[in-house]
C-alpha cells in the first residue's frame, strides 16, 4: 500500500468527500478461483455468485482465493459502499489483490439486506 493510497479505514465518500466509517467486515472464500487463475471482476453480480461466507481464514482450502468485504457508511450523507479485497492465503501470509469498490446496491441481496 503506497504512502498516499487509501487504507481500509480511510475510504472517502464520493458525494460529500467526508471520511466514511467502517461498519462491518466479512470474510468469504472464492472456491471457483484457484491460484494462478485470478482475474479482477468489477461487477457485483460476479461476487454475489462466487463468494461463500466463512468464519475464519483457516476454512479456505490450499490454493483457493478468499476475500474480505468491508462495508462503509458516510456519517454525514448516509452514502454506503462495499470494498471487496480478494487475497490468496499462503501459510501464515497473504497475497493481496487490488481492492474493488462496489455500490451497496450491487451487493444488497448478497449481504442479506
Amino acid at each position: 500500500m503506497g504512502l498516499f493510497s487509501k487504507g481500509p479505514k480511510g475510504e472517502k465518500c464520493g458525494v460529500c468527500k467526508g471520511l466514511m466509517e467502517l461498519r462491518e467486515e466479512r470474510l468469504y472464500a472464492m472456491p471457483s478461483v484457484m491460484v494462478g487463475h485470478y482475474s479482477q471482476h468489477e461487477h457485483g453480480k460476479w461476487y454475489r455468485d462466487h463468494l461463500v461466507p466463512i468464519e475464519s481464514k483457516s476454512q479456505i482450502p490450499t490454493g483457493i482465493y478468499g476475500a474480505r468485504v468491508r462495508l462503509y457508511r458516510c456519517p454525514n450523507c448516509g452514502q454506503e459502499r462495499a470494498v471487496v479485497t480478494p487475497f490468496l492465503p499462503v501459510r501464515d501470509a497473504e497475497k493481496p489483490e487490488l481492492p474493488v469498490t462496489l455500490e451497496y446496491l450491487e451487493l444488497d441481496a448478497f449481504l442479506g439486506r
Partner: peptide
C-alpha cells in the same frame, strides 16, 4: 507466495 501456494 503464489509459487509456494501452487507447490502446496
Amino acid at each position: 507466495l503464489e509459487g509456494i501456494s501452487k507447490a502446496d
